[in-house]
């Protein structure tokens, strides 16, 4: 599957099928810090991603001093 990552923007190819949580574990990402976007919606941790899927893994942490 195609995985788009942000900050910096880059694309990875990850073999599917794979559950979202397993994908995040593989990328060593904390599930509290990202969202997984498929099309114009989101997918939950247990969703199964197929080999021909395209997803975006978007970081949600923003941070200036407040």
């Amino acid at each position: 599957m195609k995985v788009l990552l942000r900050n910096p923007r880059r694309e990875l190819d990850v073999p599917g099928p794979l559950r979202v949580n397993a994908l995040l574990a593989k990328l060593e990402l904390n599930r509290e810090s990202v969202l997984v976007i498929k099309g114009d919606t989101l997918v939950t941790g247990d969703a199964l991603l197929a080999d021909d899927d395209s997803v975006e893994v978007r970081p949600v942490i923003s941070g200036g001093a407040v």
């Binding site: 810090s33 969202l35 978007r58 949600v60 942490i61 923003s62």
Partner: peptide
């Protein structure tokens, strides 16, 4: 924070 990003996407 994750909920706010999700809100905007949805």
């Amino acid at each position: 924070e994750r909920e706010m990003a999700a809100y905007c996407v949805l």
